[in-house]
């Protein structure tokens, strides 16, 4: 992972220092000094060894752009992303799962068709494109919501008023992410529940005299949700990085926007640290998925 992280960005032939100055006339000595300061004058093997040593000590270096420690920048960006991604992940998982249950249980009715087709439409759209459309419609044309950022520029509100202001700013990006991920949950839940609906134990449950709703909630849904739990946890890991495009569209000061900005540099230490974080998130949430699974399904042995 570390190896990949390091060389991936080295493969791209760029000049990080050069792009810092954007073609301005800077003495060659300044450039050389910067090169030495960032260690870019060393051979690549030496750079890699430095990288390994420092990463092991959780030192991710200084950002090329802000000259601040990379880790501090990331820590500053985490809350914004967690709030945005957390809320929209939970919303899309809950609404999508519920929609999938209704669609499967009432399959081939107008309910099924309208749920499946509408979520599919959003699922098929690229999330940044959906974001831009919503942005143009609600922020530019209608003017209901702000165009970007996390707080109103120049405001110095505190406490609840600040929170409301942030929520107001979060509405459009959260809506975009929720809509974009809704379809996946709906489709997975629907197909998983349709599989379960053919099982004999549902006939048995009906034979016992259970109401249709109880057959669904007590016997069908718990079995059908197993793959959805896995999907939710894994998505949570990916969504952290998947918000890059949406955060960039709405200038949301989170990890995604930090990534987009760092790519423009390229701000190598920043990118390395971000990608390390994203990979760690995926691994952690996979682990959470496995643990939840063994807790929900008695057939999976404790790990």
């Amino acid at each position: 992972m570390l190896v990949f992280n390091f060389f991936l960005f080295r493969v791209v032939q760029t000049d990080p220092i050069g792009s810092l100055f954007r073609g301005r006339n800077v003495p060659q000595s300044t450039i050389d000094n910067l090169r030495v300061a960032f260690g870019l004058d060393q051979p690549i093997g030496t750079q890699f060894l430095y990288y390994l040593r420092e990463t092991a000590q959780l030192n991710f270096g200084l950002s090329y752009q802000s000259r601040q420690p990379v880790w501090d920048e990331i820590v500053r960006a985490i809350p914004a992303t967690l709030a945005l991604v957390g809320i929209s992940s939970i919303l899309s998982a809950v609404i999508g799962t519920f929609g999938g249950i209704v669609a499967a249980w009432r399959r081939n009715t107008w309910k099924d068709h309208s749920i499946t087709s509408s979520t599919m439409v959003f699922y098929s759209m690229p999330d940044f494109w959906l974001g831009m459309i919503l942005l143009v419609l609600f922020a530019v044309v209608l003017g209901w919501f702000p165009v970007g950022g996390i707080t109103t520029a120049g405001s110095n509100e505190t406490g609840l008023a600040r929170l409301i202001d942030q929520a107001y700013h979060m509405f459009l990006p959260a809506l975009t992410l929720t809509l974009a991920y809704l379809g996946e949950y709906t489709l997975v839940t629907r197909s998983s529940l349709l599989d379960v609906m053919g099982e004999d134990y549902l006939t048995v449950a009906r034979a016992k005299g259970l109401r249709d709703v109880r057959v669904r909630n007590r016997h069908a849904v718990p079995n059908a949700l197993l793959p959805v739990v896995t999907l939710t946890a894994i998505n949570f890991g990916f969504v952290l990085s998947g918000a890059i495009a949406v955060e960039a569209v709405y200038s949301w000061p989170g990890l995604g926007k930090a990534t987009a900005d760092a790519i423009r540099g390229p701000d190598l230490p920043m990118l390395q640290a971000l990608f390390l974080l994203f990979s760690a998130a995926v691994i952690v949430f996979n682990l959470i998925a496995d643990i939840t699974y063994s807790w929900l399904d008695p057939r999976v042995e404790e790990i």
């Binding site: 099982e199 004999d200 134990y201 006939t203 048995v204 449950a205 034979a207 016997h219 718990p222 079995n223 929900l296 399904d297 008695p298 057939r299």
Partner: peptide, 15 residues
């Protein structure tokens, strides 16, 4: 009441 065939999935696996 029905005694279902046990070889089939007549029992809910998670209860």
């Amino acid at each position: 009441a029905i005694v279902f065939q046990g070889a089939l999935h007549a029992l809910n696996p998670v209860q």
